[in-house]
Amino acid sequence: MKNKYFPDEEIEMNDLYFVCYMIERVARHIKQKNKYVVNTIGRDGLYHLLSCANVLHCENPLKVEEDWIKDYNLKAGDYDVTAVDQELASIIPSPLDMGAVYQRLIRDTIGSKEDYVDGIMKVYNNEICDVIDNYNCSAFYEPSYVIARAYQNGGF
């Protein structure tokens, strides 16, 4: 996928990882699902953010988070992905962990005619995210090929 602002440059897998990580951070901060963040930012916004990711990753993540919330008019909700049953889930994955899970899922399921924006929109709008983001179960711990197979088969 070509960079929007520098057509000679490719958007790299690390840029996708950064955007997935920030989607997770922002969603947790405003207490919304990742799907809300992705859909509110939209295709054009995601393409812009992927194209700027190689620069944005050098910024303070708190500043980037606040900028996304302000720039895309993201509203607070009441969904807390970290509210888990302590007897079932002793460890809550970090936004970095979940960014990696989603980056790998997008990488493993993207079609030959799709770009990273298509992959983000497709994956984050899939029902499997409700299972992956349920930290009371262990779906997010599964190897990436297991998660990709579950995605393609319609569930775990």
Rank of each mutant, 00 (worst) to 15 (best):
F140M: 07
L105C: 02
N54E: 10
D44L: 13
H48G: 00
S138M: 07
A139Y: 06
N73K: 14
H48I: 03
H48L: 01
G77P: 04
V146G: 00
T82E: 15
Q152N: 11
R149E: 14
P61D: 13
L50I: 09
K63F: 10
E24N: 14
V55G: 00
V64W: 00
N73H: 13
P93G: 00
D108W: 01
R25A: 09
L105N: 01
N54Y: 14
Y79P: 04
V131G: 02
Q152M: 14
D15G: 05
D80W: 00
E59G: 00
D8F: 09
V26Q: 08
I69F: 06
G42V: 10
N126Y: 06
D44R: 11
S144G: 01
G119L: 04
P7L: 11
L74R: 02
G77F: 00
E9F: 08
L50S: 05
I91M: 03
Y116I: 05
D71W: 06
L62K: 13
N60F: 03
I92M: 05
L105M: 02
N3D: 15
D108S: 03
Y72Q: 03
F6Q: 13
L96N: 09
T109G: 04
A148P: 07
Y102C: 07
N60T: 08
V101L: 01
N54D: 13
Y116R: 08
A100K: 15
I110M: 14
V146A: 12
V37F: 03
L105T: 01
W68M: 15
Q86F: 12
Y141V: 07
N134S: 08
P7M: 10
L49V: 03
M121N: 04
P7G: 06
N3P: 07
K63N: 12
E12V: 12
Y17R: 15
E59K: 08
C58T: 15
D8I: 10
N125S: 13
I92R: 06
K4E: 12
V101W: 03
V101E: 01
R28E: 12
R104G: 05
D67R: 11
F140C: 10
E59W: 12
D85V: 12
L96F: 05
V123S: 06
Y124Q: 02
Y124P: 09
V101A: 03
R43N: 08
A100E: 15
L105S: 00
D85Y: 10
D67N: 13
Q32R: 15
I69L: 02
V37L: 10
V81Y: 01
N34G: 15
S144T: 08
A83M: 04
V84C: 05
L74N: 04
L56P: 03
Q32L: 07
Y21L: 04
N125T: 08
N39G: 08
L88W: 08
Y5Q: 06
L46N: 01
A53V: 06
I120Q: 00
Y116H: 11
D118A: 01
L74Q: 04
Y21D: 05
H29N: 11
T109V: 11
K31R: 14
Y36W: 09
I132S: 02
Q32P: 09
H48R: 06
P143K: 11
C129S: 13
N153Q: 13
E114M: 02
K4L: 15
S144M: 11
D67E: 13
H29E: 15
G45R: 11
G154I: 06
I23F: 04
K122W: 06
Y79G: 02
